[in-house]
Design a binder for these strands. Structure first.
Lengths: 262, 262
DNA sequence: CGTATTTTTGACTTGACTCAAAGCAGGTGG
DNA sequence: CCACCTGCTTTGAGTCAAGTCAAAAATACG
């Protein structure tokens, strides 16, 4: 991904933060060094809004993100669609296609970036030859499952403000793991894309952000996000309950109370 | 699972329909014959409402469902909880725990049933020794990912009636794959559990079913479900694709042999 | 510099939630 | 065999969070 502090990306060469230059802790848990040993990767630069693949196309292999921010989208036959994930450096694209011959979602760059293609045949051969690699893939898939289900819980039990807060915290945490700031970053996606991911309308996303900002928890200026009160924002998402029997179904007023209790 | 036509299960021995006696296509795509060759399974009978494991407990290995119906539930620190899946014969429990030492969800039997435990150490050894087994596991995990995301799409774009219709069709399809009726079955779960899974309140589930019944699409009497107009019910879920450019959703997982051991 | 896109805000509507209560089956114990 | 729990389901009435529609404001882009 490009330098996060720059509001506008102009250079076409991909830039990697020093802290991420050597060993990268991949969110997917995938061991890149091992991978590079056994699979001939194909590096591919992509520009913002470029489509890496669409659902239904031949599945040519996993993509390991080396730089940039991506969204994955699934579309129903009748046109309903939903963003299923936002993906950053170190994460995989296409893992849900294993066991089929076709891509299962659209993958679209939100940023200029770079992906490392792991050709299907070579990858399969390596997986059969190197058990540690197969296990790493298994772990990566299980991690994706856990993340999906954590979101399922949030989407089913949180209101709009809480969902937005959860996403902002999640992005911050993932940026932090890559050596960027946890509390200040630029959103790569539009309000509509956030809404699609969170199961909300774009206007609701805007209003939720406005409310969180009014509470002094964050500062939002279009794509620029500052998390001002991290702990309080975490509290909004309902973590750390003092009373374990309370159901967190709060709107603005209860959220404000939580903040006041800081 | 017990004989579906019987409203009440009394015998304690697990009964398998003749059509499921020989070859069973596992929804997980998992190759059981291969598994049995390399992993010493432990068969375990369970009774309705029995807890197989809870989140946070030591992860002792996968469970392969041989009979019965199960729910998996995740719980947040503040008590929010959600049913993440309903699982039937041939499906796995615990796959999302790979790469961790702990169970990631509660697994609870909704039925009397039987699970086949695949001890962790033996399973890992077998995965390292038999590449085909590791691949089968990868495919099973990828299949779970696709299913999760298909639900994500439904939950994010469908109203209450459509979600309920989708679940009823999904259960019918899975029962049919096991040799049972696609259009008549008994729900093993309560309205509250359905609601938790679909992101709805239990009253909303009831009302949605009442509405679908009023349209003549289904007949509901408490747990007894009859799908009267299958095609129309499918249409309710929004699948009507007039445009032939519809995308390939998913391929059926490779057929796996299940040797019904004595 | 003009056009397109994205974001924000306001006014209104609505589908699902909440609260409440009644009906129904199953199981238990007398 | 019946009375009585208990848990599950259904239905109704009122409320509210988020959706919808509309328009203006801010920014991006060719």
């Amino acid at each position: 991904m490009q330098a996060l502090a720059q509001p506008k990306v102009r250079s076409s060469n991909v830039q990697v933060l020093p802290s991420a230059q050597g060993a990268v802790s991949l969110r997917s848990g995938f061991d890149v060094a091992l991978l590079l040993e056994h699979v001939p990767i194909i590096k591919r630069h992509v520009h913002a809004s470029e489509v890496l693949h669409r659902a239904g196309e031949a599945f040519g292999g996993l993509l390991l993100i080396h730089a940039g921010c991506f969204k994955t989208v699934i579309t129903a036959a009748d046109g309903r669609e939903r963003v299923t994930a936002f993906r950053l450096r170190g994460e995989l694209l296409g893992s849900e296609a294993f066991g089929t011959d076709f891509q299962q979602c659209d993958a679209i760059a939100l940023d200029d970036g770079e992906v490392w293609e792991l050709p299907r045949q070579a990858m399969n051969a390596a997986l059969a030859r190197v058990p540690a690699l197969a296990e790493a893939l298994t772990v990566a898939l299980a991690t994706e499952l856990r993340q999906d289900r954590a979101w399922l819980l949030s989407l089913g039990t949180h209101n709009a403000e809480q969902r937005v807060a959860t996403l902002l915290l999640d992005l911050g945490q993932r940026f932090a793991a890559l050596g960027f700031s946890r509390t200040q970053y630029l959103l790569r996606m539009t309000r509509a894309e956030i809404g699609s991911f969170l199961g909300l309308q774009l206007e609701t996303v805007t209003r939720a952000m406005t409310n969180l900002a009014a509470l002094g928890l964050i500062c939002v200026q279009r794509k620029d996000i500052h998390i001002l009160q991290h702990a309080a924002l975490v509290r909004v998402t309902g973590a750390a309950a003092t009373n374990p029997s309370c159901k967190v179904k709060s709107l603005s007023a209860p959220v404000a109370l939580l903040v006041a209790a800081a």
